[in-house]
């Protein structure tokens, strides 16, 4: 007999040593397969519903791991507040100066007084609107352009030189030019936000196309995909994980750019609110502004992550995935 037979004889006892039940299972399923020609995979067991089981399941969900994770999170945030509290209470002064820093309580008071005022909420609304416009325009231009650059050599040759020159210029450096360029303040701030978000989105999209497995494109072509359908059904979904990385990074940079722009040239907005507080020597408002920026940024990246999870359910099962 040929080499496979001898190979099998050698291979099987080796398998036996490591995992005893394995070869038996293989043999059984092989026999079944030749009998019915096509193997029937076992359906997943349907879970029976019982209250105790649900309760135990929930209890199992709160594992030690999770408790430790939550505990460490609380400790780290608590430590930050404690440092702030102690620093301001004892007016800590050693190179860094806590002399003028407001206490957590003062900031809390500021929040309850100013926090629900129309002025404060209006500033938030303005910032969010600017982010929304700038970020959306960056996505609408960045993603399709990135897909085209990633796919076509000629498009890449045409656009990449400009991209490479423009990319190292930080969005903040665009402030004076932007004020000159756009007819009003609002447009120029949106533009700066756009610049901040645009390059991370563009570059990650290009990277997404390049990291797409070429065999998938070939498979789609064999299955009769036209150029447009290839884009919509293969290249776009295949690049989606990288696109979302770009969106998350872009959102972060967009906030950085926005706050800087608002501080320098703005009317209204959270950045403006913070800088105005400094000019008016309203120290608690500075910290309130900072915390507001942090919370808004966190919320925005949280939304992007959530949309990503909803749009890309398959990633949960990918190698190194969430589950």
């Amino acid at each position: 007999m040929g080499s496979t037979a001898t190979a099998k004889i050698v291979a099987l006892p080796m398998v036996d040593k490591h995992a005893d039940p394995e070869p038996v299972a293989v043999k059984a399923s092989a026999a079944q397969m030749s009998a019915s020609e096509i193997p029937v995979p076992e359906p997943e067991p349907i879970p029976t519903v019982s209250l105790t089981k649900v309760f135990l399941g929930l209890l199992g969900y709160v594992t030690r791991e999770r408790i430790i994770t939550a505990l460490l999170a609380c400790i780290s945030i608590g430590a930050l507040f404690l440092f702030w509290y102690l620093g301001t209470k004892y007016k800590f002064e050693f190179y860094i100066r806590f002399k003028n820093v407001p206490t957590p309580y003062e900031v809390y008071q500021q929040l309850t007084q100013v926090g629900l005022s129309n002025k404060y909420l209006f500033n938030i609304a303005m910032s969010v609107r600017r982010i929304l416009f700038g970020f959306m325009i960056a996505t609408i231009i960045g993603v399709p352009l990135g897909l085209a650059i990633g796919k076509y050599e000629r498009v890449r040759d045409f656009f990449m030189p400009v991209v490479e020159i423009m990319r190292p210029i930080p969005a903040i450096a665009w402030v004076p030019m932007s004020i000159m360029l756009w007819p009003n303040n609002e447009a120029s701030i949106v533009f700066i936000t756009f610049i901040g978000a645009f390059f991370p989105i563009l570059l990650n999209t290009i990277h997404g196309v390049h990291s797409l497995d070429g065999v998938l494109v070939r498979a789609a072509r064999c299955l009769g995909a036209s150029e447009i359908r290839l884009f919509m059904n293969v290249i776009l979904p295949g690049s989606l994980p990288h696109i979302f990385t770009g969106l998350a990074v872009g959102m972060g940079v967009a906030w950085v750019s926005l706050i800087a722009a608002e501080m320098i040239s703005g009317q209204f907005g959270v950045g403006y609110f913070t800088w105005e507080a400094y000019s008016l020597v309203d120290y608690p408002a500075i910290v309130l502004g900072m915390i507001t920026i942090g919370v808004l940024g966190l919320a925005c990246s949280g939304i992007i992550r959530m949309v990503g999870v909803l749009l890309m359910p398959w990633l949960a099962f990918a190698p190194g995935g969430r589950r």
Binding site: V215, A219, A220, A225, W314
Partner: peptide
């Protein structure tokens, strides 16, 4: 029809949608 060594299934599509792909196109 082409079958590749590296499986080449679209990871973002369910098994059924993968099989449907050519018909959709």
């Amino acid at each position: 029809g082409v079958v590749f060594q590296q499986y080449s299934l679209f990871p973002w599509l369910s098994v059924r949608k993968n099989v449907e792909f050519g018909l959709k196109m």
